[in-house]
Design a binder for these strands. Structure first.
Lengths: 117, 117
DNA sequence: CCCCTTTGTCAGTTGACGCTAACGTTAGCT
DNA sequence: AGCTAACGTTAGCGTCAACTGACAAAGGGG
Protein backbone atom coordinates (compact mmCIF):
# COMPACT_ATOMS: atom_id res chain seq x y z
CA UNK A 1 0.00 0.00 0.00
CA UNK A 2 2.74 2.44 -0.87
CA UNK A 3 1.22 4.03 -3.91
CA UNK A 4 -0.90 7.14 -4.05
CA UNK A 5 -4.56 7.04 -4.80
CA UNK A 6 -4.20 10.17 -6.88
CA UNK A 7 -1.64 8.46 -9.09
CA UNK A 8 -4.10 5.69 -9.89
CA UNK A 9 -6.73 8.34 -10.49
CA UNK A 10 -4.50 10.27 -12.89
CA UNK A 11 -3.50 7.17 -14.85
CA UNK A 12 -7.10 5.99 -15.07
CA UNK A 13 -8.43 9.34 -16.25
CA UNK A 14 -5.65 9.57 -18.82
CA UNK A 15 -6.34 6.07 -20.15
CA UNK A 16 -10.10 6.60 -20.27
CA UNK A 17 -9.65 8.64 -23.46
CA UNK A 18 -9.44 6.44 -26.60
CA UNK A 19 -7.16 8.83 -28.47
CA UNK A 20 -4.74 8.95 -25.57
CA UNK A 21 -4.59 5.16 -25.63
CA UNK A 22 -3.89 5.30 -29.35
CA UNK A 23 -1.07 7.79 -28.74
CA UNK A 24 0.28 5.54 -26.02
CA UNK A 25 0.30 2.55 -28.34
CA UNK A 26 2.10 4.69 -30.91
CA UNK A 27 4.92 5.68 -28.57
CA UNK A 28 5.11 2.28 -26.89
CA UNK A 29 7.26 0.86 -29.67
CA UNK A 30 9.03 3.99 -30.92
CA UNK A 31 10.03 7.40 -29.66
CA UNK A 32 8.19 10.01 -31.72
CA UNK A 33 8.12 13.80 -31.99
CA UNK A 34 4.90 15.69 -31.23
CA UNK A 35 4.43 16.54 -34.90
CA UNK A 36 4.85 12.94 -36.01
CA UNK A 37 2.28 11.85 -33.46
CA UNK A 38 -0.13 14.56 -34.56
CA UNK A 39 0.30 13.51 -38.20
CA UNK A 40 -1.14 10.10 -37.33
CA UNK A 41 -4.52 11.59 -36.40
CA UNK A 42 -7.07 13.75 -38.12
CA UNK A 43 -7.37 16.27 -35.30
CA UNK A 44 -5.41 19.47 -34.73
CA UNK A 45 -1.88 19.48 -33.37
CA UNK A 46 -3.28 21.51 -30.48
CA UNK A 47 -5.50 18.64 -29.40
CA UNK A 48 -2.60 16.19 -29.57
CA UNK A 49 -0.41 18.57 -27.61
CA UNK A 50 -3.00 18.74 -24.85
CA UNK A 51 -3.30 14.96 -24.82
CA UNK A 52 0.47 14.70 -24.53
CA UNK A 53 0.41 17.11 -21.60
CA UNK A 54 -2.16 14.95 -19.82
CA UNK A 55 -0.15 11.80 -20.53
CA UNK A 56 3.04 13.41 -19.28
CA UNK A 57 1.40 14.81 -16.10
CA UNK A 58 0.00 11.37 -15.33
CA UNK A 59 3.46 9.86 -15.73
CA UNK A 60 2.50 7.62 -18.64
CA UNK A 61 4.97 9.16 -21.09
CA UNK A 62 8.38 10.80 -20.82
CA UNK A 63 9.48 13.88 -22.72
CA UNK A 64 12.89 14.52 -24.27
CA UNK A 65 13.66 17.92 -25.77
CA UNK A 66 16.01 18.28 -28.71
CA UNK A 67 16.09 21.74 -30.21
CA UNK A 68 12.58 22.85 -30.98
CA UNK A 69 11.34 19.28 -31.14
CA UNK A 70 10.02 17.20 -28.28
CA UNK A 71 10.17 13.44 -28.37
CA UNK A 72 7.76 11.32 -26.40
CA UNK A 73 7.97 7.73 -25.29
CA UNK A 74 5.77 5.41 -23.20
CA UNK A 75 6.85 5.06 -19.59
CA UNK A 76 6.12 1.51 -18.36
CA UNK A 77 6.54 2.41 -14.68
CA UNK A 78 3.58 4.76 -15.05
CA UNK A 79 1.34 1.70 -15.19
CA UNK A 80 2.68 0.14 -12.00
CA UNK A 81 0.28 1.89 -9.64
CA UNK A 82 -2.70 0.95 -11.77
CA UNK A 83 -1.46 -2.60 -12.07
CA UNK A 84 -1.17 -2.85 -8.29
CA UNK A 85 -4.68 -1.46 -7.90
CA UNK A 86 -6.05 -4.10 -10.24
CA UNK A 87 -4.14 -6.87 -8.46
CA UNK A 88 -5.59 -5.91 -5.08
CA UNK A 89 -9.10 -5.68 -6.46
CA UNK A 90 -8.70 -9.01 -8.17
CA UNK A 91 -7.34 -10.85 -5.15
CA UNK A 92 -10.11 -9.46 -2.96
CA UNK A 93 -12.77 -10.62 -5.39
CA UNK A 94 -11.11 -14.02 -5.68
CA UNK A 95 -11.15 -14.38 -1.91
CA UNK A 96 -14.88 -13.77 -1.99
CA UNK A 97 -15.20 -16.35 -4.74
CA UNK A 98 -13.38 -18.89 -2.64
CA UNK A 99 -15.62 -18.10 0.30
CA UNK A 100 -18.73 -18.57 -1.83
CA UNK A 101 -17.55 -21.92 -3.12
CA UNK A 102 -17.00 -23.08 0.45
CA UNK A 103 -20.45 -21.86 1.46
CA UNK A 104 -21.98 -23.75 -1.47
CA UNK A 105 -20.11 -26.88 -0.54
CA UNK A 106 -21.34 -26.69 3.04
CA UNK A 107 -24.85 -25.39 2.47
CA UNK A 108 -25.89 -26.69 -0.96
CA UNK A 109 -27.44 -23.46 -2.32
CA UNK A 110 -26.62 -23.11 -6.02
CA UNK A 111 -29.16 -20.31 -6.68
CA UNK A 112 -26.64 -17.54 -7.15
CA UNK A 113 -27.49 -16.65 -10.79
CA UNK A 114 -25.06 -13.78 -11.26
CA UNK A 115 -26.88 -12.02 -14.09
CA UNK A 116 -24.84 -9.75 -16.35
CA UNK A 117 -26.99 -7.33 -18.34
CA UNK B 1 -5.92 -10.50 -29.08
CA UNK B 2 -9.38 -11.93 -28.56
CA UNK B 3 -10.92 -9.20 -26.51
CA UNK B 4 -12.92 -6.23 -27.69
CA UNK B 5 -11.59 -2.73 -27.67
CA UNK B 6 -14.98 -1.48 -26.53
CA UNK B 7 -14.84 -3.71 -23.47
CA UNK B 8 -11.56 -2.14 -22.40
CA UNK B 9 -13.07 1.25 -23.10
CA UNK B 10 -16.14 0.53 -20.97
CA UNK B 11 -14.09 -0.79 -18.05
CA UNK B 12 -11.70 2.15 -18.23
CA UNK B 13 -14.45 4.75 -18.35
CA UNK B 14 -16.21 3.05 -15.44
CA UNK B 15 -13.05 2.93 -13.33
CA UNK B 16 -12.11 6.53 -14.12
CA UNK B 17 -14.72 7.73 -11.63
CA UNK B 18 -13.41 7.71 -8.02
CA UNK B 19 -16.81 7.00 -6.49
CA UNK B 20 -17.28 3.99 -8.73
CA UNK B 21 -13.93 2.64 -7.58
CA UNK B 22 -15.06 3.13 -3.98
CA UNK B 23 -18.27 1.22 -4.71
CA UNK B 24 -16.25 -1.51 -6.34
CA UNK B 25 -13.99 -1.82 -3.30
CA UNK B 26 -17.11 -2.00 -1.14
CA UNK B 27 -18.66 -4.90 -3.04
CA UNK B 28 -15.34 -6.66 -3.61
CA UNK B 29 -15.41 -8.24 -0.15
CA UNK B 30 -19.16 -8.46 0.49
CA UNK B 31 -22.39 -8.62 -1.45
CA UNK B 32 -24.41 -5.51 -0.63
CA UNK B 33 -27.85 -4.13 -1.47
CA UNK B 34 -28.16 -0.85 -3.38
CA UNK B 35 -29.44 0.93 -0.28
CA UNK B 36 -26.57 -0.27 1.86
CA UNK B 37 -24.10 0.93 -0.75
CA UNK B 38 -25.82 4.30 -0.99
CA UNK B 39 -25.72 4.65 2.81
CA UNK B 40 -21.93 4.58 2.65
CA UNK B 41 -21.78 7.83 0.66
CA UNK B 42 -23.04 11.35 1.12
CA UNK B 43 -24.66 11.60 -2.30
CA UNK B 44 -28.20 10.73 -3.33
CA UNK B 45 -29.34 7.17 -3.88
CA UNK B 46 -30.09 8.22 -7.41
CA UNK B 47 -26.45 8.94 -8.09
CA UNK B 48 -25.41 5.57 -6.65
CA UNK B 49 -28.05 3.80 -8.70
CA UNK B 50 -26.67 5.38 -11.87
CA UNK B 51 -23.15 4.42 -10.88
CA UNK B 52 -24.30 0.85 -10.31
CA UNK B 53 -25.89 0.82 -13.76
CA UNK B 54 -22.61 1.91 -15.31
CA UNK B 55 -20.68 -0.71 -13.36
CA UNK B 56 -23.13 -3.43 -14.34
CA UNK B 57 -23.14 -2.43 -18.03
CA UNK B 58 -19.35 -2.50 -18.07
CA UNK B 59 -19.40 -5.99 -16.56
CA UNK B 60 -17.56 -5.00 -13.39
CA UNK B 61 -20.38 -6.01 -11.02
CA UNK B 62 -23.12 -8.64 -11.03
CA UNK B 63 -26.69 -8.08 -9.88
CA UNK B 64 -28.88 -10.49 -7.93
CA UNK B 65 -32.54 -9.63 -7.31
CA UNK B 66 -34.34 -10.74 -4.17
CA UNK B 67 -37.79 -9.24 -3.72
CA UNK B 68 -37.56 -5.49 -4.07
CA UNK B 69 -33.88 -5.51 -3.17
CA UNK B 70 -30.95 -5.85 -5.52
CA UNK B 71 -27.64 -7.17 -4.34
CA UNK B 72 -24.41 -6.26 -6.06
CA UNK B 73 -21.04 -7.95 -6.05
CA UNK B 74 -17.71 -7.33 -7.80
CA UNK B 75 -17.11 -9.45 -10.88
CA UNK B 76 -13.38 -10.28 -11.17
CA UNK B 77 -13.65 -11.44 -14.80
CA UNK B 78 -14.69 -7.92 -15.72
CA UNK B 79 -11.10 -6.82 -15.17
CA UNK B 80 -9.59 -9.46 -17.44
CA UNK B 81 -9.77 -7.41 -20.63
CA UNK B 82 -8.21 -4.40 -18.97
CA UNK B 83 -5.51 -6.56 -17.43
CA UNK B 84 -4.66 -7.99 -20.82
CA UNK B 85 -4.51 -4.49 -22.30
CA UNK B 86 -2.06 -3.39 -19.61
CA UNK B 87 0.06 -6.51 -20.10
CA UNK B 88 0.41 -5.87 -23.84
CA UNK B 89 1.28 -2.23 -23.31
CA UNK B 90 3.77 -3.15 -20.65
CA UNK B 91 5.53 -5.82 -22.67
CA UNK B 92 5.75 -3.51 -25.69
CA UNK B 93 7.35 -0.79 -23.58
CA UNK B 94 9.72 -3.30 -22.01
CA UNK B 95 10.79 -4.48 -25.44
CA UNK B 96 11.71 -0.91 -26.28
CA UNK B 97 13.65 -0.66 -23.04
CA UNK B 98 15.61 -3.75 -23.94
CA UNK B 99 16.31 -2.37 -27.37
CA UNK B 100 17.55 0.89 -25.89
CA UNK B 101 19.86 -0.89 -23.51
CA UNK B 102 21.34 -2.82 -26.42
CA UNK B 103 21.78 0.38 -28.40
CA UNK B 104 23.55 1.96 -25.44
CA UNK B 105 25.78 -1.03 -25.06
CA UNK B 106 26.76 -0.93 -28.72
CA UNK B 107 26.86 2.80 -29.26
CA UNK B 108 27.77 4.31 -25.88
CA UNK B 109 25.26 7.16 -25.91
CA UNK B 110 23.89 7.63 -22.38
CA UNK B 111 22.28 11.04 -23.12
CA UNK B 112 18.71 9.84 -22.93
CA UNK B 113 17.59 11.86 -19.84
CA UNK B 114 13.94 10.84 -19.80
CA UNK B 115 12.58 13.83 -17.90
CA UNK B 116 9.28 13.43 -16.04
CA UNK B 117 7.86 16.81 -15.08
C1' DC C 1 -56.87 -3.37 -0.65
C1' DC C 2 -53.83 0.20 1.32
C1' DC C 3 -49.44 1.44 2.77
C1' DC C 4 -44.66 1.32 3.17
C1' DT C 5 -40.17 -0.07 1.64
C1' DT C 6 -36.71 -0.58 -1.88
C1' DT C 7 -35.18 0.68 -6.10
C1' DG C 8 -34.96 2.35 -10.88
C1' DT C 9 -36.11 6.10 -14.27
C1' DC C 10 -36.87 10.77 -16.19
C1' DA C 11 -36.09 15.89 -16.76
C1' DG C 12 -33.01 19.57 -15.73
C1' DT C 13 -28.76 21.81 -14.07
C1' DT C 14 -23.91 22.33 -13.53
C1' DG C 15 -19.07 21.36 -14.07
C1' DA C 16 -15.50 19.01 -16.65
C1' DC C 17 -13.42 17.73 -20.97
C1' DG C 18 -12.03 17.61 -25.82
C1' DC C 19 -11.73 20.38 -29.76
C1' DT C 20 -10.56 24.59 -32.75
C1' DA C 21 -8.48 29.06 -33.92
C1' DA C 22 -5.29 32.61 -32.86
C1' DC C 23 -1.17 33.89 -30.52
C1' DG C 24 3.36 33.38 -28.08
C1' DT C 25 7.90 31.07 -27.62
C1' DT C 26 12.09 28.87 -28.68
C1' DA C 27 15.61 27.09 -31.80
C1' DG C 28 17.99 26.85 -36.15
C1' DC C 29 19.36 28.82 -40.62
C1' DT C 30 20.84 32.41 -43.99
C1' DA D 1 18.69 40.64 -37.57
C1' DG D 2 15.10 38.45 -40.12
C1' DC D 3 12.68 34.36 -41.30
C1' DT D 4 10.82 29.85 -40.73
C1' DA D 5 9.82 25.45 -38.36
C1' DA D 6 8.14 22.99 -34.32
C1' DC D 7 5.56 23.30 -30.21
C1' DG D 8 3.01 24.94 -26.28
C1' DT D 9 -0.69 28.07 -24.41
C1' DT D 10 -4.99 30.64 -24.02
C1' DA D 11 -9.88 31.78 -24.88
C1' DG D 12 -14.04 30.21 -26.37
C1' DC D 13 -17.39 26.73 -27.75
C1' DG D 14 -20.00 22.36 -27.80
C1' DT D 15 -20.84 18.06 -25.62
C1' DC D 16 -20.91 14.58 -22.25
C1' DA D 17 -21.26 13.01 -17.59
C1' DA D 18 -22.41 13.35 -12.58
C1' DC D 19 -25.65 15.09 -9.53
C1' DT D 20 -30.41 16.48 -7.62
C1' DG D 21 -35.47 16.26 -7.17
C1' DA D 22 -39.82 14.35 -8.43
C1' DC D 23 -42.15 10.35 -10.09
C1' DA D 24 -43.04 5.39 -11.23
C1' DA D 25 -42.76 0.38 -10.45
C1' DA D 26 -42.72 -3.76 -7.76
C1' DG D 27 -42.80 -6.64 -3.76
C1' DG D 28 -44.26 -7.52 1.22
C1' DG D 29 -47.21 -6.82 5.47
C1' DG D 30 -51.34 -5.05 7.91
Amino acid sequence: MVEDESQVDDALRALAEPRRRAILRLVATDELAAGEIAAAFDVTRTAISQHLTVLKDSGLVSERRAGTRRFYRARPEGLDGLRQFLDEMWSDALDVGRRLVEADRADGTPEISSDVA
